[in-house]
Design a protein around this nucleic acid. Sequence first.
DNA 1: TATATGATGACTATATTGGTCGTCATTTAT
DNA 2: ATAAATGACGACCAATATAGTCATCATATA
Lengths: 153, 153
Amino acid sequence: MRLSHKTDYALRVLFDLVDTHGKGPVAIRELAERNEVPKQFLEHIMLELKRQGWVSSLPGRTGGYELARSPDTITLGQVVRAFHGVLAPIDCVSVVGYRCCGQESRCRFRHVFKEIRDYTAHLMDEATLASVHAGRPLFPKAPKAGRKLRRSV
Amino acid sequence: MRLSHKTDYALRVLFDLVDTHGKGPVAIRELAERNEVPKQFLEHIMLELKRQGWVSSLPGRTGGYELARSPDTITLGQVVRAFHGVLAPIDCVSVVGYRCCGQESRCRFRHVFKEIRDYTAHLMDEATLASVHAGRPLFPKAPKAGRKLRRSV
DNA sequence: TATATGATGACTATATTGGTCGTCATTTAT
DNA sequence: ATAAATGACGACCAATATAGTCATCATATA
């Protein structure tokens, strides 16, 4: 799973709306400037967020967007899936996007990527906008890669 | 990190060469058929594997490819990086591919993806062709996502 | 010497990504 | 009433990445 700009932008704006939660609607222009997202691109993103029921909009001169649900009911996993489709690093380990490669019996490395999918999915489904915004530590604690992280990641 | 077909193909062939290790060179045609990889596409992949020093080639009528190094000295991480560039799900948590988004001070969710990167990198750098081929359990054990895995991953 | 092998650059087709443009509808401040 | 701000939304476009194909050449050996 590689995060697209679109998903990145969506998350930026959602966390912005968590900041301003309860303080009335925020104009898309303001959201675009503050989070450095091209305004006209953001329009499409906001429509998708609205379709998902995560934000609501108020038209008119004093209009704008606001969070439509409590931040602890929206997870990073939901957002990433909505914009990205799937969390799995390869289709053959995806639950929804499963597409057999016709080589399962030969495939030796599938389980490694399945492990990554499981970890990723678990982490992202536990992470709500609220918990991440509050900076609460992630559960479960991931193993540390050690001090010598010189490799290309 | 989303695995491309190219990386998938590269891994298929490498594990095939682990199977046939020590039994002489295998023709690219044979590798292509057995692993269901378009032959002419595989040619380019094999050249890259050769450039990386993982396989060696023998030209001529009885030629072909064979593993140039012991399977326990080649990791999935190395292969994926060679074909994919980077393991990180987003550039701002990448070590080599680091590209600042200009929003670090505002970014609330970076650490979640960093966690995923660290886990992924650790797992893939521990997984050698030999250990994966032998089906040895991965270290460290990833947390289980529970029984109710109905969500879209 | 015919025939198999690998080596390699050029080319192409398609999908995805990351947008922009133009137009319209809605609400409110004046 | 109307000007000015807002969101809604479909059409279009450019760049890039992906996933190949094609044609040609070099090399080794049966």
